[in-house]
Design a protein around this nucleic acid. Structure first.
Lengths: 341, 341
DNA sequence: TTGTACGCGTTATCAC
DNA sequence: GTGATAACGCGTACAA
């Protein structure tokens, strides 16, 4: 049950002053060779490490960053976390994770707590659904006003000026639909979320644009909007029952997988009768039978980029206000669900 | 770009002493009604919140806990994180996440850093594969010697005495196999990991015991040991090609899903010709076609229990050394992959 | 070459 | 009823 050893302990033990110990450990040339050696040996022996809290208090920076995500049981956010964690640790930062559970209130409270308590030096955040619905971003602005850097990822808003890392959602959807068209599909359904979710809106636009560019009509009946996961199955079943189509694009893994399941139950052969593509390259699509073609959002890269931008800003004393938006390019991972002719 | 406001700022502004301000904010009755009001009003106006770092320095506790997990892209660990985060935030603690990536070195370095820097008050850890292989737990003992509480979850070891939260792996496997037998299966295959992974060993034992109790022989040819995910497909394909069996138990989601995929490709009907059960109740099993029966490990519950135990110990000054092991009971989630007769 | 003193923000004790 | 002071652990400017 030995307590942590401090500079004071070493000083007393070696009968020198605290500052001598401090300087010795930092290889300050002011200190004589022999005392330095002695101190360093002793420190190593007792495994001395500076108390982070004291250093934080002194520097006014904790070397902690907060990652606020709406959900954790999504492969996408999981990989983002992985990327953030990797870069952060590389550069000597720790990651505090907060799951907002898509709740505006939890998001606000956590940010206030982290910011006002001086618990973290900066934020990486992906907005909750509720926040996007309310269209209220005071808490983000507040944090920025306190001089804390903020990087928004994936679910972002134009109403807050900050660094951002996003995916080219529109282009991802465009590419996916174009791929389906090239494979011969003509009636392509879309399963998406409400428009206030930024990425949902953008993906729908990409879908429409691709259809238009290929001289295909946009049929509203083929666009299903799912408000909540729980109703996904019902809504998609209606689509499968009432409409005919030869391809589906789901804006996330779950929608794509549910669509495939219902189609298979309805006796459709995948991909011959209906081809399928889903957003997010997670395990659900990879291990489905048949495996499902994916629009890979490169979550790890997003996380890495966001952490890099945040730390960059934290460590550059210059208060340049030139905020940047990094766009990660999606890529299409072709699998069996679009393996036609 | 307003800096954070401190007690000193308020004191100067209101022309009182720092301690008066501090006491007023804590509703100390020593302070006169009017000054208290004045101070509180001012503090609220400027949105004062005590600086956490200073408080930490004083109390020698950060109100942060570390969660160290081997992997994050596993639904199981993801749900554990969710449970930990929930309870921790409820009780005023923050969670630092560290992904060891199954690496002994990363696990050791992170723990040393968190512990020696005084960054966290305690640990929740699930051992990396490499650590279990090396059978080296010095870093855990070291942390305990420093007086920091430690709760091990899921992948634990008897060689370290600490609080633990585990799942009744043996019983879970036993129940799963029994279920298969009751459904009429007689030749039941097992896809598992190496024995040094504690949970792998226990699940194999449960499998064997269940077979024995039902007077069925254990056929070594039906037990596949997968060392690394990358070789899972090859190993399982050999099983499917060379052996005949009417059921499979996979010790995780991926093994179960891969098995089903290969069986389907081999023309087997699920569940009529081969029934399937997998460990971990994640999305892979739930959304598979057909949906796969699961041994639910209740990751969220494990996380909640672990966080509860850790915080309990952190907040009880009593240094009672009566370590406890909480066992979370698995439950069988019946789905289509075992829906026979 | 080494030591002293101060400050980071807070709280608790004690003096007035 | 209010204020001064010490302490938490560290780093650093300055004094010796």
């Amino acid at each position: 049950m030995k307590r942590k050893i401090t500079l004071k302990d070493i000083a007393k033990e070696l009968d020198v002053s605290i500052s001598t110990v401090s300087k010795s450990l930092k290889n300050n040339p002011e200190i004589g060779e022999d005392t330095r050696q002695k101190v360093q040996a002793f420190a190593k022996l007792y495994n001395y490490k500076p108390n982070n809290i004291a250093v934080s208090l002194l520097n006014q920076r904790t070397k902690h960053i907060a990652l606020i995500i709406p959900e954790i049981t999504h492969d996408f956010f999981t990989t983002v976390l992985k990327g953030v964690e990797e870069v952060a640790h590389q550069r000597g930062y720790n990651v505090l994770v907060c799951v907002s559970n898509e709740s505006f209130e939890k998001e606000v409270l956590s940010m206030e707590m982290f910011a006002q308590g001086g618990i973290v030096d900066g934020f990486i955040i992906s907005l909750s659904k509720e926040t996007q619905l309310k269209d209220d971003y005071k808490h983000l602005v507040e944090v920025e006003n306190q001089g804390m850097p903020l990087v928004m990822i994936d679910r972002v808003t134009d109403k807050v000026i900050s660094d951002k890392v996003i995916v080219d959602d529109m282009r991802g959807a465009y590419t996916a639909v174009s791929h389906l068209v090239e494979k011969g599909c003509r009636r392509i359904a879309l399963i998406t979320t409400q428009d206030h979710i930024s990425v949902g809106y953008l993906r729908k636009e990409g879908y429409k644009k691709a259809l238009a560019d290929h001289d295909l009509a946009v049929a509203d009946a083929l666009i299903v909007t799912v408000d909540h996961v729980d109703e996904a199955e019902d809504k998609i079943r209606q689509l499968v029952t009432n409409e005919t189509f030869d391809a589906v694009l789901g804006v996330n893994e779950i929608f794509a997988v549910i669509a495939m399941k219902l189609l298979q139950e309805a006796g459709k052969r995948i991909p011959d009768e209906v081809a399928i593509i889903g957003f997010s390259d997670g395990k659900l699509l990879k291990y489905a039978t048949p495996s499902i073609t994916a629009v890979d959002q490169h979550g790890v890269e997003i996380g890495k980029a966001a952490a890099g931008m945040l730390i960059e800003r934290l460590e550059s004393d210059v208060t340049e206000e030139n905020f940047r938006t990094t766009v990660i390019t999606t890529s299409l991972v072709e699998r069996d669900s679009t393996n036609l002719n």
